Structure formats: structure tokens, C-alpha cells
Amino acid sequence: MASQGTKRSYEQMETDGERQNATEIRASVGKMIDGIGRFYIQMCTELKLSDYEGRLIQNSLTIERMVLSAFDERRNKYLEEHPSAGKDPKKTGGPIYKRVDRKWMRELVLYDKEEIRRIWRQANNGDDATAGLTHMMIWHSNLNDTTYQRTRALVRTGMDPRMCSLMQGSTLPRRSGAAGAAVKGVGTMVMELIRMIKRGINDRNFWRGENGRKTRSAYERMCNILKGKFQTAAQRAMMDQVRESRNPGNAEIEDLIFLARSALILRGSVAHKSCLPACVYGPAVASGYDFEKEGYSLVGIDPFKLLQNSQVYSLIRPNENPAHKSQLVWMACNSAAFEDLRVLSFIRGTKVSPRGKLSTRGVQIASNENMDAMESSTLELRSRYWAIRTRSGGNTNQQRASAGQISVQPAFSVQRNLPFDKPTIMAAFTGNTEGRTSDMRAEIIRMMEGAKPEEMSFQGRGVFELSDERAANPIVPSFDMSNEGSYFFGDNAEEYDN
């Protein structure tokens, strides 16, 4: 993207840094990872977990959730003011799984939030270390993106479920800051804005008074975040219109849905970061690795190297396929839920299948599930090659597409044709070009129609051997075009429920 120079890199967003050079960025990201790792080690000690239990991804998720809940100030305040039966607002906890007599047992633990905050700050040299908290939120978000298709949420806001490739980060909490905003897809931002506008339509006082002023500035800020994701002048001009509207209503909703559809071809720039579970960072720190000293990046080879040398386990339900569970977590670790499966298959070195073909449910185990038949197995999170994460949407291309997802959002900077089903997408653009945004709409449609099938995206960008740390010898991959490109292809993934 041309304006790259004016933006802070995501590592800076990730670490609240002012302008830093590459070495400083690597050190501050490393410091953040160190903090998460030290916190995780301490929690495993508190909970008396064995090494194996500490490497269980379900335990990692519970521990991450506990610290996120302990620092969720708004919710904590709300819980104190609106006490609900049987919930102690000062405590947080969740299921911890232990191996007892050759069987997995679930144990519900409860801790004072104050105590968890103390352990977290102690692991982070006394700081609140917001960057580390956001990092864990993005890992949870990436896992949700890989596990669930947001059909219901899309339909509720009037969008087409086939636009799911635009929904990265749709389950990120509001408090995820600049680093969170960077990884949100165009569809996620559109959905947040539509929800806001709908509230304004239904509630006369939404934009009024002292609160209304705050609401208005939040609305304009979200519009600017979305505008910054678009790469064409016409899309940005249309966002200006939406932002400046005196009284946002149905016309703005129409414009936003139009823009979301246009992003299936004229893709937005959305950041991709490899955020790993805390149970990967903990053992690495415990083994003596100093992330701050060595430096770390979320968008280069580092996460690949770390996963190459990590042992992570997962509980497996009786009829689940461990290899499929591994694929789910591998995609989440690489922030690749909406990437082209052919690119992923090449990088991973084994075939990556669409969601609907995987015999696996989510990673988390519900409290009512029976533990008797639970097994555990090693997650295979290694890769054959590594590639640089991208934040450009890439230019655009036609490809055989599917009944489910009709476009992709690249996660890796790797040369390819970008699949999208042009006739299906263009069919949504018939007729409606009147109104105050008509010239911009016409211009956007013209650009979409001009998108050429034979153009290559990320020209000359390749993948790298894991021994090639400096990215000196790019390998331009070859793809098996007979395979499906979309992950949520004609899909039956479970729906995400809060």
C-alpha cells in the first residue's frame, strides 16, 4: 500500500510504541512475548500442572481467558453494579484439565481477579502490559475465525453469508486497541457500523446529549479505520460520505453494504499476525530463551520457528480426527482463516481442507461434555516452508469459486491468482447506482469489472525454506488448481455463540 510509510507498523501498534527502528520493534515485541511466557509459567505453578498438562491447549485457553477477564475493567465495573446470582464479580476462573488415573478430569478453578492481575503485572515488570493482553485477544479471535462461520451475524446486519472472507476479527472485544483495529476485516468494521446506525434509528437519543457526542466521535473513528483499509480513492470518498452524514440511517447502511461487497474484489488491507497460545510461549521462556534479547516478529519467520520446536497437546472428542484438529489450530496460529487453501497447503506441506470436510468441533470443551471418553493427542503445528504475512489485500483475480465463501483475504505475501467468483459478486451490483453516491458507485463498479483474471497478485513473492531466515531465496510455489480455494466452501461450520 502506498501510504505504508505514514502508518505505524503493526509491531508498533502491538507494543504501543512511538516510531521505533526494526531492532527496537523486535525487542519490544519480544518483551511482550516474554511477559506472556513468564505469566503462563507462574500460572502453571499456581495450578500445580504437570509439564504435559501445561502444554494442553484447553488449559492455555482457560488461563488466557482468566487474565483477560481480570483486566476487563468495563465488564468488571458492570458486574459490580449489576450483581447477578451466583456470579462473584471479583473472581474469575474456568475449567482446568488434569490427568488422573490414566483419565482426563475437569476441575473448575476460581481465583481472585486481583490475584491474577498481581501475577500478570509481576510477570511483566510491574506494568499492565496491555500489548500482551491484546495479543491474547487476537489469538482467540484468530481461533474463532478458523472455527466458526459468522453466517447468522452477517444475515442479521443485512449482509450476504458468502462475504465471510471479510469477517476477520469479528469476535475481537471493543477494547483491543490499535492492534485489534489493524486485524479487523472490512466486513467486521461494516458490521460494527451498521449495528451502531441501527441503534440510532431505533433509539432517538442515541446521537443526542453528552453521551451522543461520545457516540458520534466513536462512529467517526470507526469510519476512519474502515476508510484506511480501502485502497481505492472511490471507496475512500464513499467512506467520507458515510462519516460526514448528519443523521446516519438506511442510506448509510446501503452504502456500507455496497462497500463491503466491493471489497470482495477491490480488497481492503487487513493486517495478519501470528499470535500463538500462551502454552507455546511459556515452555520456550522456561527453556531459557530470551525473546527480548533475541527479538521477535509476528509477521516473519519467528512464529514458524517457534511452532517448529513446540509440543502442544489437545483434548480430542471420541469421533474427532486429531489431524483435522491440528489443521484448525495451525490455521489459527498463522492467522489464515480466509487465505486461499492452495497457498496454505503449499506452505504447510500437507493438504489443507475446507472447514466442512474437517471432523472436528471447536477447541474448547463445553462444561456439560462427558470427560470419560476424552483422549488427548499432539497437535501437528509444523510447516514445510515459511512466508511473510501481508497486510495488503493483493490485486484481484477471477477463479472458480464456491457456493460458500466467494473470495479470499490473503494472509501471506505469496504470488498467486486470487480466487473470487466474479459473476456471483457482480450480480449483486445491478441497477442500484442512484442517489448521492452514484458517481462513486459507478466508478467502483467500473474498477471491479476491469479486474483481470490473468493478473498475478504479489508478483514474484515466494515462500522460503525454514533454514532461509533472511528470506534470501524465494520459492514461487505451484498450486494444484483442481483443489478448492475457499475454506468455508459450501460450508456447515458451527455458528459462533458468545
Score class of each variant (00 low, 15 high):
Asp203Leu: 07
Lys184Val: 08
Ile365Trp: 13
Arg355Thr: 10
Ala178Lys: 10
Glu81His: 09
Ala401Arg: 15
Ser9Asn: 15
Arg8Thr: 02
Gln409Lys: 00
Thr23Cys: 11
Asp497Arg: 00
Glu455Met: 08
Asp421Ser: 14
Thr424Ala: 14
Thr151Met: 08
Met456Ala: 14
Ile119Tyr: 09
Glu24Lys: 09
Gly228Leu: 12
Arg117Lys: 09
Pro248Lys: 03
Ala260Trp: 10
Ala332Cys: 06
Tyr496Leu: 08
Gly462Ser: 02
Arg156His: 09
Arg8Phe: 00
Arg342Cys: 10
Pro354Met: 03
Phe39Trp: 15
Lys325His: 06
Glu380Gly: 02
Pro83Arg: 07
His135Phe: 12
Glu375Leu: 15
Ser345Glu: 12
Ser314Pro: 06
Arg384Gln: 04
Ala387Ile: 00
Asn319Gln: 13
Arg384Gly: 11
Leu307Arg: 03
Glu24Ile: 12
Ser478Ala: 00
Pro477Met: 04
Lys325Glu: 09
Met371Asn: 03
Arg317Leu: 04
Asp372Phe: 11
Phe291Leu: 12
Pro423Gln: 15
Tyr148Arg: 02
Leu110Met: 06
Cys279Asp: 05
Asn144Tyr: 06
Leu226Ser: 14
Met239Ile: 14
Leu79Asp: 02
Glu14Ala: 03
Gly300Lys: 06
Thr157Ile: 15
Asn432Tyr: 08
Arg221Met: 10
Leu108Tyr: 09
Ile347Leu: 15
Lys184Trp: 10
Leu381Glu: 07
Pro453Phe: 01
Lys293Cys: 01
Ser457Gln: 13
Glu469Trp: 02
Met371Val: 15
Arg446Trp: 00
Gly490Asn: 06
Asn319Asp: 00
Met374Pro: 01
Glu46Thr: 12
Thr157Glu: 00
Ser438Tyr: 00
Ile265Glu: 00
Asp255Pro: 10
Gln231Ser: 10
Gly37Cys: 11
Cys164Glu: 00
Met448Ser: 06
Lys198Ser: 15
Cys275Gln: 04
Ala27Tyr: 01
Phe420Lys: 00
Ala366Pro: 06
Thr215Ser: 15
Ala337Phe: 07
Leu110Glu: 04
Ile406Cys: 11
Met331Ser: 09
Thr215Trp: 02
Glu494Asn: 14
Gln405Asn: 02
Gly249Phe: 04
Met238His: 12
Gly435Pro: 10
Met238Thr: 04
Arg156Ile: 07
Asn483His: 09
Asp255Cys: 03
Ser170Met: 06
Lys87Ala: 02
Gly435Met: 06
Asn247Phe: 06
Ile25Glu: 05
Arg436Phe: 03
Leu344Trp: 03
Asp128Gly: 05
Glu443Met: 12
Asp290Pro: 15
Glu80Ile: 12
Thr147Arg: 04
Gln20Met: 03
Thr430Phe: 00
Ser383Glu: 00
Asn432Phe: 15
Val100Lys: 06
Leu344Ala: 04
Arg106Asp: 10
Ala337Cys: 14
Asp127Cys: 04
Ser287Gly: 06
Arg461Asp: 01
Arg461His: 05
Asn432His: 12
Ile225Gly: 12
Gly435Ile: 05
Ser287Ile: 06
Glu210Trp: 07
Thr390Asn: 11
Glu80Asn: 13
Lys357Val: 05
Ala403Asn: 10
Cys44Tyr: 07
Leu298Lys: 09
Arg117Cys: 14
Lys305Ile: 09
Gly268Ala: 03
Ser170Pro: 05
Glu494His: 09
Arg162Ile: 09
Thr360Ala: 11
Gln405Leu: 02
Met426Cys: 15
Arg106Met: 07
Met163Glu: 03
Phe420Tyr: 12
Asn321Arg: 15
Arg99Ile: 02
Gly185Asp: 07
Lys273Phe: 03
Gly180His: 02
His82Ile: 04
Glu210Gly: 11
Asn432Trp: 03
Gln311Arg: 15
Met136Gln: 14
Phe230Thr: 14
Pro95Met: 07
Ser353Pro: 15
Thr151Phe: 05
Pro173His: 12
Leu143Trp: 12
Tyr281Pro: 11
Ala237Pro: 02
Tyr97Ile: 08
Thr433Lys: 01
Asp72Gly: 08
Lys422Cys: 13
Arg199Tyr: 13
Gln308Phe: 13
Asp101Lys: 06
Ser482Lys: 07
Pro303Ile: 06
Asp51Glu: 09
Asn370His: 14
Ala237His: 14
Glu11His: 03
Tyr78Ser: 02
Asn321Gly: 06
Gly485Met: 07
Gly185Tyr: 09
Val109Ile: 13
Ala182Ile: 02
Asp255Ala: 02
Asn321Thr: 01
Asn473Gln: 15
Gln20Phe: 01
Ala332Met: 08
Trp207Asn: 05
Phe488Pro: 03
Asn142Glu: 07
Trp330Thr: 01
Leu259Pro: 02
Thr151His: 07
Arg391Glu: 05
Phe464His: 15
Val363Ala: 15
Gly288Gln: 09
Ala263Glu: 01
Asp302Ile: 04
Lys227Pro: 05
Asn224Ser: 04
Ala373Met: 14
Gly158Lys: 01
Ala131Asp: 02
Thr437Asp: 15
Asp302Cys: 12
Met447Ser: 13
Phe230Asn: 05
Ile63Gly: 01
Pro248Met: 04
Ser269Ala: 14
Ala179Trp: 04
Lys90Leu: 09
Arg75Phe: 08
Val190Thr: 14
Leu154Thr: 03
Trp104Ala: 06
Ile138Trp: 11
Ile253Ser: 04
Arg174Met: 10
Arg102His: 12
Arg391Cys: 04
Ser402Tyr: 10
Asn211Lys: 02
Leu381Pro: 01
Ala27Arg: 14
Gly93Leu: 06
Ala401Thr: 03
Cys275Val: 12
Arg317Ala: 06
Glu292Lys: 07
Val280Met: 15
Thr430Ile: 00
Gln168Ser: 14
Arg118His: 09
Pro277Trp: 04
Ser170Cys: 07
Gly200Pro: 05
Arg348Tyr: 07
Glu484Ala: 10
Arg195Glu: 12
Gln327Asp: 11
Leu61Lys: 02
Thr396Gly: 10
Met105Tyr: 11
Ala286Tyr: 05
Thr430Gln: 01
Gln4Ile: 14
Ser310Arg: 02
Arg213Trp: 08
Met13Thr: 02
Phe464Gly: 02
Arg26Thr: 05
Asn205Asp: 07
Lys91Gln: 04
Ile475Glu: 00
Pro423Phe: 00
Thr130Ala: 05
Cys333Trp: 09
Met426Val: 15
Arg174Pro: 05
Ser457Ala: 10
Ile425His: 00
Ser467Pro: 01
Val67Gln: 10
Ala181Gly: 13
Lys227Thr: 09
Phe479Asp: 03
Ser310His: 12
Ala278His: 03
Ala131Cys: 07
Met137Asn: 01
Leu328Asp: 08
Asp145Ser: 05
Val352Leu: 14
Gln327Lys: 12
Met371Tyr: 03
Lys452Gly: 10
Lys305Met: 08
Ala123Met: 04
Ser60Cys: 14
Arg391Leu: 01
Leu226Gln: 12
Val408Glu: 10
Asn370Arg: 10
Leu110Asn: 04
Ser353Val: 11
Ile257Met: 14
Met136Glu: 09
Pro477Tyr: 01
Thr6Gln: 00
Ala2Asn: 00
Leu56Gly: 11
Glu210Val: 02
Cys223Leu: 14
Asn205His: 04
Ser9His: 00
Glu114Ala: 09
Arg361Val: 15
Glu244Tyr: 02
Trp330His: 07
Asp127Phe: 12
Ser402Asn: 03
Asp203Gln: 06
Met167Lys: 02
Tyr97Arg: 11
Tyr219Phe: 10
Ile445Phe: 07
Asn250Lys: 09
Thr151Trp: 05
Trp104Lys: 03
Lys422Pro: 00
Ala263Asn: 14
Leu110Lys: 12
Val329Lys: 01
Met239Tyr: 07
Ala179Arg: 02
Tyr313Glu: 04
Ala260Cys: 09
Glu114Arg: 01
Phe346Ala: 13
Val280Glu: 05
Gly187Met: 07
Leu328Lys: 08
Ser367Trp: 11
Gly35Pro: 04
Trp386Val: 09
Ile316Tyr: 01
Arg342Lys: 14
Val242Trp: 05
Thr157Phe: 00
Tyr219Met: 11
Met191Ala: 03
Glu220Asn: 02
Glu46Val: 06
Ser28Trp: 01
Ile36Phe: 15
Arg246Ile: 02
Leu307Gly: 08
Asn309Phe: 01
Glu495Met: 12
Arg19Leu: 00
Lys227Ser: 08
Ser165Pro: 12
Ser165Tyr: 03
Ser413Ile: 05
Ser3His: 12
Met371Pro: 06
Asp372Tyr: 05
Asp421Cys: 05
Gln364Ala: 10
Glu14Phe: 10
Ala493Asn: 14
Ser402Gln: 13
Ala337His: 03
Ile138Met: 14
